[in-house]
Each structure stands twice: as C-alpha cells, then as structure tokens.
Design a protein around this nucleic acid. Structure first.
Lengths: 295, 295
DNA sequence: TCCATCCCATCTCGAATGATGATGGATCAT
DNA sequence: ATGATCCATCATCATTCGAGATGGGATGGA
C-alpha cells in the first residue's frame, strides 16, 4: 500500500468514479482502474462497488477512507515541516471575519509583510461558519472567528474580546417590540454572518421576532441603511466609533453577557504550524496588545 | 514523497547507516542511497549528514522523522482496519502486569479463546514501565498496568481497583524501623516492578529506608522468602488470600490512600482498535464484573 | 428496439522508475 | 601499510506505471 494509491483511492471515492478521478489526477481512466485493482488485491478486499454510473465505497472502503485522508494530509505537512527551517517563508493563507479583518488585522498587515518579506500572506474574509469549514478542510492554515468554537479537531486561542452594540435609527430608545422595531430588517454584511443569529437572539429576548433580513456588501451601505431607518444591525463598538463617528444612528449598549464576544484564532489540531503562521500570530498578538495599551 | 521512501528514511535514521538499513529492508545499499538522494532532492533539503561511520539526521531530517513514523504506523493500521470486518480475528498482542495476569486475566482466557477461536491472543507479562514503553512503540495493542498513567499519547480506562497489603514475617506488628524491619530486603517479582517504588515510599514514610532488593521469578519463591523472615513484599490482598491462605506470614493492612491501586487498560490514542481488541476488552470487563459480584 | 452515452475492465507498448552488482573514494582501527 | 567499513556513482536489467485503444455492460431517450 502506497501513498500514491491512497491519493487515487481518495479521489475516486470523493468523485464517485474512476473517470472523474482520472481527470482530476491528470491521468487516464485505465490507470486509475489498474491502481485501484492492485490496491484491492494487496488488501484482499473490494474497496468499491462498481455500478453503471460510477463506483461507491464498500464497507472496507469506508474503513480505509479516514486513514487515506490522514496519510495524505500528513505527507503534505511533512513536506512543509522539512522545508520550513524556522525562518518564516512561503504561502500563508489565513481566514478572518470581515469585521475583524478590517478593524484589527488590516492595520497590522503592512508591518507584517515588511518584517517578513519572504511570506506570501493572503487573508480570506468570510463568516465564522464558512471559515471554520475551510479550516477543517485544510484550505486555510488557521483563522480568526467568533468564539468559542468547541470543535474536537480544532485548537482555539482567545485573541481579544470586544463589545458589540446594536445600531438603530435615531429616536429609538429601547430595544423592544413596543419601540417601533417591528417591520425593520436585520442588516448584515453577509447572510451567514455570525452576528445575525446573535442579534436575533438578543431581540427575541425582548419580544421582537420575525425580522426580515437585508444583506449588503459594504459596511458603509449598512450604516447608511440603519441611519435611514430601514434596519437594525449589530457591530463591534470600536468599528462604529472609527468609521462612523458623527452620523445619525442610535447606539444601544447591551449587558455584558450579550455584548461581549471573543475572537479566537483556530487551527486544526493535527496540522503543522508553519514558522510563517507562528510569526503571524506573534505579530498579531503584539499588535493587538499595543493597540489596547494605546486606548 | 512516498510511503516507501519514508520507510527507507526511517530505517536509515534508526540504524544510523544506509548499509545497515539496506540489510534490514532486504535490498542493497546503492538502492537505499539512491532513494534517500531522490527524497532529498524532492524536498530540497539534506536529510542526513554523511560521515565515515554512517549517517546522522540533520535538523531537516529530525523534522521529518515524526511524520515518517506516523505515516508508517497509519498505513499499518489502515491495512488492519480494512481487513478487520468487525468479526474478531487475527493477532492480538496485549501486555499485562504479571500479578494482574495471573490473578485476574488468566481465569478469563480460556473463555475468550473458546468464544473467539479466530483470534490469536498472546499476553506478554512485564512491569508497568516496560509495558507502557511497548505500547508507545506499538509493539503491544494495549496493556493492563497500574494507573494512573497520564501520558498524552495514551488513552486509559480504569478496569478495576484492588487493595495491596504488605507481607512480612510473622511477629512483626508495625511497619516502622523500630519493628525489626532493618536489614530485611524488599522482595519483588522483577526488578522494575511498580510495586517496589510504592513499597519503598510506604516504608520511607515510616522511617524505614535503604532496604536492599531481592528478586525472584515466581510468587511461590517470594512467599517462601517472606515467610522465612528474609524480606518484605507488597502484593494484592486477593492474590495472597488465594494462593497462600494458611502460611505463616503477617499481613499488614494499609490506609486506603496507600493501599488502593487502580489497574487501567491503556492503548495509544492514535492506534486502530481492532475488533479482536474490542471483544477482548468486553470479555474482560464482563468477567471482572462477574468475579466481583461473586465475592 | 435501437442507438447514443457513460463508465469501467483489459490489453499493448513505450517511458519512467526501481533494484542490482561492481567499483571507487574516504575514513578509521590495527 | 592494510584491511574493514561505509557511502557515492554507474551501467544494466527488471518491474512498474502511464497512455491510448478497444470492448462490454448499464442506462435513458427516441
């Protein structure tokens, strides 16, 4: 049994067919068929059921799958571990909430790329849920998301805590259903935004339910929409202070148990921590501590 | 990078030479040299320092080693996982303390081999420390040892708790240094026995230190030696009751915090749990519960 | 029923890869 | 010096692997 065989096996299982797997692996179908057949002979068990529209895993194949996945990812990590000589370099792909990115991370990035020019950093914005998925699939080395995550395969480290506030149109004094919130919409940056569920919960406790959703691509649009009395949103207080200091929106402070949210850095427990990633985290921790001290 | 390459790499690193690795791998030295060279080219890093008496790992090689070990063991486990169709069968190698083996496990073994004739069970006796080492090296699928073990790579499950008692020659009423223990020896089954450290601690608290060691191969010899007034030993109470009911030794009961010892079953967290192992554990759990109920 | 389509199995051939044994250079102990 | 040990290199041979072509079975639509 060989790592190459397992790669073929994984592709066939995932794509449900040998021809499709061959296309993905840049080879020909006959090749895939042969290697699977050899693998099955070596193991003395059928790994796939062949049927007319492709193949499906047998019980034995299902038992093999987790091992195949782990071996493949281990080999990838091994290569990186060998090449990584302690000097941060190479690709580093990190995920982040868009608000965290623009508010906390962005100011630190120029410093990082100056300090470590050999690192090709890219940061992908996304919602907490999307981002967690990507980390689990190893498409991201790590990510900043709203915590706690509590996933057995993920390691999480609290990075900072911040306060969320509710923004409404001016003139609304209380967050309840008698205060004229009925008919407004919840305005979020993206539909899967983790703040949305949180805001719905906050409102539900005050008797406000069933608000429709409104989605915008930029923060400016969201602010404008809220100022115009069309909706209500939940955002970090600091973000509001920075970019929207003097506009006409009402800021509603929440009790700490509802308002405080931790941002955590997550990564797969079983993945290799590259020097680039370690350097980035150090840089971020330092930068955030400095920013906090400056307040 | 390939699993075969990693096997070669591991053998070279472990044996400290390409010729030696070639011998172990049933191939020729030139072959090993070539594969290592290819591997180094692929990774873009030197894995070994060549010197006149063999080779030694470089920093990059040391970084690769844990991955190589894990991939190799994963592939071994994968093969077993595929072949294991849920019906307990095949080899099952388990470790155990000798006392646990003779007292608790042995009576259950005949029942197990009758119930699962397809399993080739072998149980290796040894001290707790030896046995833990073997489990970590994957030479044993699991083992019964004195707990708690508290090793990050090991999973442990409490199997039963039992009471240890001190045996001395008759006429010794107290376990302290004024009671004539000076000059006696600590009698143990094997020199690394985990009871030995425990007994030394127990005696130390009572002011008795510096007893010499005496080692025997059989329990009968130990009992005889204690009865003859030559030494002192620490053994499970039940063992003493069973095989030595009416001999002339003094039994010293200890306070619970000193006497009670847990026996745990340990296995590597990352290893495959074969059906045979699961069936064995089930059998043991059931048998021990029945034995306890019968008392 | 017939045909087009999709998918897997098998075959052959050429290329790439792997293993072999011989050889040479370096180092170290005697 | 000499022999032993160990790694690197090379030419050669065997095996494996990949490409392409072909065939057979199942499916779905005309």
């Amino acid at each position: 049994m060989d790592a190459g065989d397992l790669r073929v096996f994984e592709a066939v299982a995932r794509l449900g067919g040998m021809s499709r797997a061959a296309a993905e692996l840049n080879t020909v179908q006959s090749n895939v068929t042969a290697r699977i057949r050899v693998l099955e002979e070596q193991l003395g068990a059928e790994l796939f059921e062949r049927h007319s529209r492709g193949v499906a895993l047998t019980a034995a194949g299902r038992r093999l799958m987790p091992y195949a996945l782990q071996v493949i990812s281990l080999l990838k990590d091994a290569r990186r571990a060998v090449v990584d000589n302690g000097e941060p370099a190479g690709d580093l792909v990190i995920g982040s909430l868009e608000t965290t990115l623009s508010m906390h991370l962005a100011p630190l990035l120029t410093g990082f790329v100056e300090r470590w020019p050999a690192v090709d950093l890219s940061i992908r914005g996304g919602t907490t849920q999307e981002t967690i998925e990507h980390v689990l699939e190893r498409r991201l080395e790590g990510a900043f998301v709203s915590g706690p995550v509590n996933h057995p395969d993920l390691e999480e480290e609290k990075v900072f805590r911040e306060e969320l506030v509710v923004l409404t149109a001016p003139g609304i004094s209380r967050l309840d259903w008698s205060a004229g919130l009925a008919g407004l919409r919840i305005v979020v940056l993206r539909s899967g935004c983790s703040y949305r569920q949180r805001l719905e919960n906050i409102l539900a406790r005050r008797g406000v339910v069933g608000l429709r959703l409104l989605e915008f691509g930029t923060l400016e649009a969201i602010f404008g929409c809220v100022a115009a009395g069309m909706g209500i949103t939940l955002l970090p207080r600091r973000m509001m202070e920075r970019v929207w200091r003097d506009r006409r929106v009402a800021v509603h402070t929440l009790p700490p148990d509802e308002s405080m949210v931790d941002t955590v850095f997550i990564r797969r427990r079983d993945s290799f921590v590259s020097s680039a990633q370690a350097a980035f985290l150090d840089h971020v921790r330092l930068g955030l501590a400095a920013a906090q001290a400056a307040e």
